[in-house]
Nucleic acid binder design. Structure first.
Lengths: 260, 260
DNA sequence: CGGTTGTTTGAATCCGTTCAATACCTGTGG
DNA sequence: CCACAGGTATTGAACGGATTCAAACAACCG
């Protein structure tokens, strides 16, 4: 999620191996801040195409020059906001939520370091969901108009953007499969294994981590009630698949968990 | 869905007002066929950006020159197939299905005339779902590589492609909301109203139409069992919201149906 | 330290599933 | 043309997984 230098530093777990060092980030909630550089960002392997030259990075540095600090619970953008930029999570984590007229809420995704936000806004020039910080977080601002210009000259970047959009489509399809066909137990198992994979890809432990979201937010993502989430955690504990203590998660037997 | 000249012509309902005339299409299942022309296709307002010049259309005609006829039940592409083209439905209709290792199936969407297929394949150069024809259908083949070239010269087309991808993301988010938060009754109501809107946008009746999919396929899309779909149809009938006779649907009271 | 928020667990209830039987529709072949 | 077959749709009754409501507990913050 974040390096120890960022945010509240109350996390004694995930950053034990700070494999991906990040710049120190002031805790003040300054809306924008210069100084971010793609060219030497530790996250660049996650949000940029792999084969970029030094001059390519220079071009991106000229575009993505601001970051935004978002306090826990605050929004990066809200449904209805004019779409102007994509965002990359530089530190911390977010949830994206769509709210129906009648108040129904669905968490459409959780985004951690190196993942991208805001692609829903391209269609209608308006965001269709809220992006809320799960902890004090930092996002890189990627102005869409300028990104397009870069894409016109940098074909690999253009291709990468198409792929990111398509990836989001595939991710959501998978989530639909989960919501449409799986039991509460299976949904939670898949959710934990998916999170584990993403943490591992970032150099953190894939078996021990801290959840940044509440049981309610997990339930709202998986289409089940928070009580059910809690019951399933208890069941996993009983069956020696996962150990939990509050937000702390230890996946004991990933293989069996996948077969639930 | 299709004009009377296409397919089995067993549909006495939807094409009663053939507002969108289509070219006659031979019933033989020829894999590819020349002769399609974007410039004078009746569907062009649906799958292309609005403000194109004659020369712009000429460019597209040079690219999208083949169509493919797909028999009911046959696939346009399958999960694992190499991604090479996007597809636009020219006549008929399709469903897209993801199949989990364990056999679980989820219908991620239904595509009718003028809608687009295949965007899931961009991410990994492989399709991730099956696209199956619900009736004898015709799809325009849009070679992705060549489309990219056109996009590089035709900015409005490029923007449109980005928007189409984003639109798909938004559509899937909405579907997730449905799967995650709504009762069986509400899901079916929303589904029917959504279909009605799309038919209406194509010049057909928004209150009377024929379903092209079975109860099982509807259920598989809505995350409920086919028996439940049937029960909800019966409930709507009892409450004078919708009248059905097999695949024939008449939405009697759309306002109340939306409030279910 | 007290108040707030988040988590766990139990018991009763309910919605959707499962299993099963019957009816229907459509295309096929006698 | 009618009868038949096979897939599709409807309906009932019993069951079960998830929800609801409620209460107790734990963790966190000012």
């Amino acid at each position: 999620m974040s390096s120890t230098s960022v945010c509240k530093a109350t996390d004694p777990v995930a950053p034990m191996r700070p494999v991906i060092p990040l710049y120190a980030v002031a805790r003040t909630d300054v809306p924008k801040q210069r100084g971010a550089r793609c060219s030497n960002c530790a996250m660049r392997t996650l949000c940029l195409p792999p084969e970029l030259s030094a001059t390519d990075y220079g071009r991106l540095d000229a575009i993505i020059c601001t970051t935004r600090h978002v306090r826990q619970g605050d929004s990066l953008y809200r449904a209805g906001d004019a779409f102007q930029s994509l965002y990359a999570v530089r530190a911390g984590s977010f949830k994206t939520v769509i709210v129906h007229r009648d108040g129904r809420e669905q968490v459409t995704g959780f985004q951690i370091t190196g993942e991208t936000l805001g692609m829903d806004g391209i269609a209608s020039s308006e965001h269709t969901c809220d992006a809320i910080a799960l902890e004090d977080s930092v996002a890189c601002i990627i102005p869409y108009g300028q990104l397009q210009k870069v894409c016109n000259e940098l074909k690999s970047m253009q291709q990468y953007l198409y792929q990111m959009l398509s990836n989001e489509i595939v991710r959501e399809s998978t989530q639909m499969l989960m919501l449409g066909t799986m039991s509460a137990e299976q949904r939670l198992a898949q959710f934990l294994l998916n999170l584990a994979t993403r943490f591992k890809a970032r150099g953190y432990s894939g078996s021990e981590f801290n959840l940044r979201m509440t049981r309610e937010e997990i339930g709202c993502h998986l289409g089940i009630k928070l009580e059910t989430v809690s019951r399933m955690f208890s069941r996993f504990q009983r069956d020696a698949l996962v150990e939990t203590r509050g937000k702390r998660v230890h996946i004991v037997d990933a293989e069996r968990l996948a077969l639930v």
